[in-house]
């Protein structure tokens, strides 16, 4: 089954990281992505821009356009992985590997959400 692993952490903390630490973190993620791709399990990887770039459309007739994220939280959705996993056990194991790339012993969390269905033909995503 295809699972999504949603990465939540404080974007304020992410912004406070030094440039070297940020580059090291990206390198760890890229290495993991190569591994998962070699295992034939990697679906897609998404890194989201800060919530300051977010726009929320809400209301029954979607008439209200609000700047900012849907809800104010201490942790924000920073990005996500789509990974093929045979079992939940494997998904948890994969989430741990992703967590090791993030190295967030702080308030960060990874939410595992099985994917009901997906379309993965992304028109244009820029590789790091």
């Amino acid at each position: 089954m295809l699972y999504s692993v949603l990465i939540y952490a404080s974007e304020a903390v992410a912004a406070a990281r030094s440039r070297q630490d940020d580059e090291a973190l990206l390198a760890r993620h890229l290495a993991l992505q190569r591994e998962l791709a070699a295992e034939g399990r990697l679906g897609a990887v998404v890194r989201l821009m800060p919530t300051t770039t977010a726009t929320t459309v809400r209301g029954t007739n979607q008439s209200m356009v609000i700047d900012g994220p849907f809800i104010e939280t201490k942790e924000q959705l920073l990005g996500l992985y789509l990974v093929e996993c045979a079992t939940l056990e494997e998904a948890i194991e994969t989430a741990r590997r992703i967590g090791q790339c993030c190295r967030t012993p702080d308030s960060g969390a990874l939410e595992i959400r099985p994917v009901s269905w997906s379309r993965l033909d992304v028109p244009r995503g820029e590789a790091p």
């Binding site: 404080s10 304020a12 903390v13 992410a14 912004a15 406070a16 990281r17 030094s18 630490d21 190295r103 967030t104 012993p105 702080d106």
Partner: peptide
């Protein structure tokens, strides 16, 4: 945990 580099961004973000 011997590597304490994770604390710095937490402190800076909270500052």
């Amino acid at each position: 945990m011997t590597d304490l580099s994770w604390i710095d961004p937490l402190l800076s973000a909270a500052r």
